[in-house]
Amino acid sequence: MTSNAEHGMLDDFLAYTLAGRRPAAHETQGTCANGARWSWLDEGVLQFEPASVGKGTRSVLASAGVHGDETAPIELLSRLVRDIARGSAQGGLALTCRLLVILGNVDAMRDACRYRDDDLNRLFSGRHAQVPHSHEAPRAAALEQAAIRFFADASSEAGARWHIDMHTAIRASAFEQFALLPHTGKPFSRAMFEWLGEARISAVLLHTTKGNTYSHFTAEACGAEACTLELGKVRPFGQNDLTRFAGADEALRHLLAGESGVAPTTMPRVFTVIDQLTKQSDAFELLVAADVPNFTPFAKDTLLARDGDYRYIVSRDEERIVFPNATVKPGLRAGLLVVETTRHTLSQLV
């Protein structure tokens, strides 16, 4: 029988988490209507195990709220938890995968801000150790350990480990919904690209160096097929039109239910990072409009940034800028430069 505490937590995991509630020691585990078992592991961290687990059972980490003000994906995950708890017989979701649901920067979510001291999505792969007094450092370490423990029990078969980290962008974009794939040195997966196509992701950005994001960490440390999704604009809780994210929501549900979903009619366009703008000092100038959309193209010989003696001038016929942000702290990325590589990338998928 479902306890009142369990019902409240699973029925609205977001409200439960924002309120700072925690289950009593004897109420941290239970069973859903469909036989799936759930475990509350930490604030904002829930694990589900399907009624039947086999050798090749898929393990999926679904995270949102790594930036506290990116609310739409957080709301999507909260609804997902509710529907898993209800089970397919009650109009909910059948679960055939192991699932770890993570709401990332809970304190920033409560404060309706991106982060308190440091960008949580720049503190993974051990970088949190460099800022031990940061409010975000303990959370980065905890989320690393949560992923390691979850994937330690996962199948090692190809394609059995996934991490979908969902975000929303600060600014407009030439491609409203796009994905970023971490650099691991390994070929990119056709299954991931087809899933992104089903999710109606229109563009994919390929990193060419290792980073400190959550998806970089799980790809490298846990062997996961990992992606970061950018699903639209930052808005306050309750002001999101979640129908705009139906593609990603439905594709994630198909993944968790073990369904093939709808075959994509078109694959996403692909862009590869060729350089980045780094803010070296407070003298840094980003010579683009403050509201320039992501993926805006610039022609050869355009001066994009300067910082003391440093200049960034477009050297190819066309380069596009992604995540331009002159307000970051010195030493951090102030923008990425990408070029289109669709044909080559899609021909190399495995």
Rank of each mutant, 00 (worst) to 15 (best):
S3F: 05
N4P: 15
A5I: 15
G8I: 08
M9F: 11
M9E: 13
L10W: 11
D11P: 08
Y16I: 01
H26Y: 12
E27R: 04
T28M: 09
C32G: 04
N34G: 15
G35A: 12
D42I: 06
E43K: 05
E43H: 06
E43R: 11
P50M: 03
S52H: 14
K55L: 15
R58N: 10
V66D: 07
I74F: 01
L76E: 02
V81M: 03
R82V: 04
A85I: 11
A85R: 00
A89I: 05
A94H: 15
R98M: 00
L103M: 15
D111P: 07
A112G: 04
Y115F: 15
R122A: 04
G126R: 01
H128T: 09
A129R: 15
Q130G: 06
S134L: 03
E136N: 10
A137M: 15
P138A: 12
P138C: 09
R139S: 05
A140Y: 00
A142N: 02
E144W: 05
I148F: 14
R149M: 13
A152H: 03
A152I: 10
A154G: 06
A154T: 10
W162N: 00
M166W: 10
H167P: 03
R171F: 10
A172D: 13
S173Q: 00
Q177D: 08
Q177Y: 02
A179R: 02
L180T: 14
L181M: 11
P182W: 01
H183Q: 00
S189M: 01
R190L: 07
M192N: 05
G197Y: 14
G197E: 06
A199F: 13
R200Q: 15
V204R: 00
L206G: 09
L206W: 05
K210H: 14
S215I: 02
H216Q: 06
C222Q: 07
C222W: 03
G223P: 05
E225T: 13
A226K: 02
A226D: 14
C227I: 14
E230C: 05
K233T: 11
P236I: 08
P236W: 06
F237W: 10
Q239N: 13
Q239M: 15
R244M: 04
R244I: 07
A248G: 05
E250L: 12
E250G: 08
L252E: 01
R253M: 03
L255G: 01
G258C: 02
G261C: 01
V262H: 09
T266R: 11
I274S: 08
Q276H: 08
S281M: 02
L286D: 00
L287G: 02
V288S: 00
N294H: 09
P297V: 07
K300G: 07
D307L: 09
D307C: 05
Y312P: 08
I313P: 02
R320S: 12
V328P: 01
A334T: 01
G335C: 11
H344S: 14
T345W: 07
L349D: 11
